[in-house]
Design a protein around this nucleic acid. Structure first.
Lengths: 136, 136
DNA sequence: CTTGACCTTGACATCATGGGAAGGTGCAGG
DNA sequence: CCTGCACCTTCCCATGATGTCAAGGTCAAG
């Protein structure tokens, strides 16, 4: 299987497959006589594994660890769970940050007339840090 | 005021102040005879504005627009509100993505024994895409 | 043999930020 | 006056994950 096929089948772009090879996340693929990379079912499974992990927001570093555990038949599931747990915390922290931003923005936006007049609590907040004169 | 002071007072790093100047987000600062950048109260206000906007997750491009509106006395608050609204949508979309990841991970993690045994629904999910044998 | 689709490597862009090197400036103390 | 330290300057490189583009080689079908 050429890289294009592997990309289509795994959902990882050809570009990223080469990149993952370059950074050592996956082993260097076999090559044909003319230098084309070739992929087998095992490689495909690895690539698909990686894509699913990326879809779940795992970083390359975390995926490196997950791949090692995946290949390690004597792994302890606790190790996997720990990585996942850490990742859940990271994601949750990010969500909280976003949540706070959204709350603030919604609040400011709700108090903004949104008409032709220049007065705007959003700008006011950015400029002065205060809550704006129309604010509760 | 030197760049270090301006950085401390505004909460924007000296590095980033120079960067913002280089990309044209802020005007080039005045210089002393020996080439040091100097900042006044107005510059400080701009930098603080930028930092607050960054804290709310606005991109540089959005901040560029917000700054223009801020300086424009004949602005319509509707323009500001539109930018904020678009940003709220972006943030909310990101939050939803994170939320989905977290839900999936929590589900998988809950079904992982987390002990010495190698069986792990998390890896199983990444490997096969299925829900894992212990799954509801 | 030509054409078009695919592959190769390499360089550069994104976005916001940080790190560091190499060298100049300013001020305080000896 | 000199020394030392803290600060400033510019320039280059790195992050993380991905994309784009370019120049050239390869393969299969017509």
């Amino acid at each position: 299987m050429n890289i294009g096929e592997a990309a289509a089948a795994s959902g990882v772009s050809a570009k990223m497959i080469r990149h993952y090879e370059a950074i050592g996340l996956i082993e260097a693929a076999g090559r044909t006589g003319s230098g084309y990379r070739t992929y087998g079912q095992k490689d495909l499974a690895t690539l698909t594994f990686i894509r699913r992990a990326r879809d779940l927001g795992f970083s390359i570093a975390q995926i490196r660890d997950l791949l090692a555990l995946w290949r390690d038949r004597s792994r302890a599931s606790a190790d996997v769970k720990r990585i996942a747990g850490a990742h859940i915390e990271e994601l949750t922290a990010k969500m909280r940050q976003l949540q706070e931003m959204v709350m603030t923005l919604q609040h400011l936006s709700a108090h903004c007339h949104g008409d032709d007049r220049p007065d705007c609590p959003i700008l006011e907040r950015l400029a002065t840090g205060g809550a704006g004169k129309d604010c509760c």
